[in-house]
Design a binder for these strands. Structure first.
Lengths: 237, 237
DNA sequence: ACTGCCGCATCTACACTGTAGACTTTAGCC
DNA sequence: GGCTAAAGTCTACAGTGTAGATGCGGCAGT
């Protein structure tokens, strides 16, 4: 499988090199990142690749599968070390990595949280299940029973996605404006009905996601560690 | 072509009574609940109401606004008592209510978590902001400072939505099948790469959402209460 | 009762979507 | 060269959201 000829194929934009699933998905992600999910139509992607739109169907069964591919691509950027002896550090690392991914690809986040809702576990792209498997592995390696590992994973996953949803939805309307109320568009809310929310504009404006995440992780981890030593103690006899 | 004029505006199914925003949104929710988001097209909804699709644009600016209306409608089913002196009980109640809503309208959940990601706070339908305002009110009434109340809200909201996403995505493929591995479709996963996940099939199958949620709430609340008494103590001097 | 009005509902039309199915081009092998 | 299978293209179709013009029905004022 050698590409013997034409080494000059990596020049760039609308090249005539052979398509591949990787190429298609990479360009798809590029479009989504730049212009959002709605901009990713088959025709548009075809044009972006300098190909007929129909050629894409060789690499993704349909548009839904294409979107699945994009989420898989993003999740593949998440590297997990299931063998890490320091499981708490590893979990914390994962949290920050996932947050970074979400901020890097905010337009993909809806896919990340939404696709699993319409696809049963066993039918999902393997890439999206790998983190689950690896985190289970990490936790079991740390001493959790498989069943407990599952519970911990759920708590952790829930917390993480909850945080990401939180952070991404508090984005700023007009960064030029330096009055907090205006930056967030909160001035449009009726003052009578939303006094608390309006009063909190400054606090909302100076939200610091990374710190908040880290703090939450710390709390969660201490809770989990307590649970772990408890289980170990009681099941040791 | 037979019946020219029919005064029968109180007949049953596809009646000719005047449309209203409430009617339109209610029927829209009905369609979404029954057949999913994709089934909700303007033409379909028009037909369902016995009206021309274009008439819908009197009651929603466009399809996106229609979807916003549906999420608002669902969130309006959530009643919160900001004056409840027992704030912990109230938060627990809210958690279970929201979970119930999610299970009742699973097809709306993608909207619930996704729409806020593309609409700045100040521009959202007021109905979707009311819970936020009310919970802030509840927490401030309970003694939290406004800024702390915001943090607590975030933690709570994140936890809740995380849980809902968790629970809704672990649904069963084939309820007829009584082998856990098959019920979840996990037999399709390569055994080499996903040993943990496959082994956990039975545990996955007997997931009990309500209990898991309640347990999480308990932990979270105890943490929050500790935080509250801490703040009260340190700021009292 | 006639007129004018205004808001609701409808009709028509358009640009754009995903994708099925037949077809043509290309690349690798003998 | 010729053969074969894969890769890419073309055409066509049913369905989408929605702009803009048109029709309709009840109310106000005279």
């Amino acid at each position: 499988m050698a590409s013997a000829k034409v080494p000059a194929n990596f020049t760039g934009p609308a090249q005539k090199q052979r398509l591949s699933r990787e190429l298609v998905l990479a360009k798809a992600l590029e479009v989504v990142d730049a212009e959002g999910l709605d901009a990713l139509t088959m025709r548009r992607l075809g044009q972006e690749l300098g190909r007929d739109p129909m050629s894409l169907y060789r690499y993704a069964e349909n548009r839904a599968a294409l979107l699945d591919g994009v989420t898989e691509l993003v999740l593949n950027e998440l590297t997990i070390h299931p063998q890490d002896p320091d499981w708490k550090a590893q979990l914390r690392q994962i949290a920050h990595d996932l947050r970074r991914l979400a901020l890097q690809h905010p337009n993909v986040v809806p896919l990340l949280v939404t696709r699993p809702l319409s696809t049963p576990l066993g039918l999902r792209p393997l890439g999206t299940l790998r983190p689950l498997e690896q985190i289970l592995s990490l936790l079991i390696g740390a001493g959790f029973s498989p069943a407990d590992a599952l519970h911990v994973y759920r708590a952790y996953y829930g917390f993480l996605y909850g945080h990401i949803l939180n952070e991404l939805q508090e984005f700023v309307v007009d960064p030029e404006e330096n009055e907090a109320l205006l930056r967030l568009g909160l001035h449009r809310l009726p003052a009578k009905e939303f006094p608390r929310l309006r009063a909190l504009a400054p606090a909302l404006a100076e939200y610091e996601g990374s710190a908040e995440l880290d703090q939450g992780v710390t709390i969660l981890l201490s809770g989990l560690e307590a649970q772990l030593s408890l289980r170990l103690g009681s099941s040791a006899g």
